[in-house]
């Protein structure tokens, strides 16, 4: 990890971009704008990974979050019929539940931040130039069970989607 003046400047630039856009995601009243701000937030987070020399993770961040998750939201928007998009991302009145959830998330972040040995991480020094191989080996050795479970989950989701789509078709044909 570099600690030159340039990386510090880059970090604060990215941090401002991320926080600013994340705020705009919440406060934009048009859900289409929210999605676009969300995409910018994800891409800037990819920049943070780059700053930590994790280039593979940065590319994954862009591909999966900005490229796929935002597109899923886009599908959702296009499938919902709505003549006016002006007030589609409004606040609800669940103040207490919301505050509780936010407090929980902040507490969790604080606990993890407190438990991480930051000085050791910085002292560990150089990140290997080629992280892909190491990640691949870990995924198929130490973390093979979570990896396979995630794959299974995706398979179930895929089959579920097909079953739901097919069911509609059969019903429609029966109706005719």
């Amino acid at each position: 990890m570099e600690t030159s003046i340039y990386s510090v400047i880059a970090f604060y630039g990215l941090a401002i971009t991320i926080l600013g856009n994340a705020t705009l995601v919440i406060f934009a009243r048009n859900i289409v704008h929210s999605v676009l701000f969300l995409a910018v937030t994800f891409i800037a987070m990819g920049g943070l990974f780059l700053l930590l020399d994790a280039d593979f993770l940065a590319a994954v961040q862009v591909l999966v979050y900005a490229g796929a998750v935002c597109i899923m939201v886009v599908f959702g928007i296009m499938l919902i019929q709505r003549s006016d998009m002006k007030a589609t991302n409004l606040f609800n009145r669940q103040t207490f539940a919301g505050a509780g959830l936010v407090a929980l998330v902040v507490a969790m972040c604080a606990v993890f931040a407190g438990r991480t040995a930051w000085t050791d991480l910085v002292a560990a020094g150089e990140v290997p130039a080629n992280t892909v191989q190491a990640i691949g080996e870990l995924m198929l050795s130490k973390y093979v069970i979570p990896f396979e479970v995630a794959a299974l989950l995706l398979l179930v989701a895929l089959i579920g989607a097909i079953v739901i789509a097919r069911d509609e078709e059969v019903k429609a044909n029966a109706g005719n």
Partner: peptide, 14 residues
């Protein structure tokens, strides 16, 4: 870049 092909696919998806 070490992950050239992957980078290209990621950016192109945008």
């Amino acid at each position: 870049m070490n992950i050239g092909v992957f980078y290209l696919l990621a950016i192109a998806s945008l």
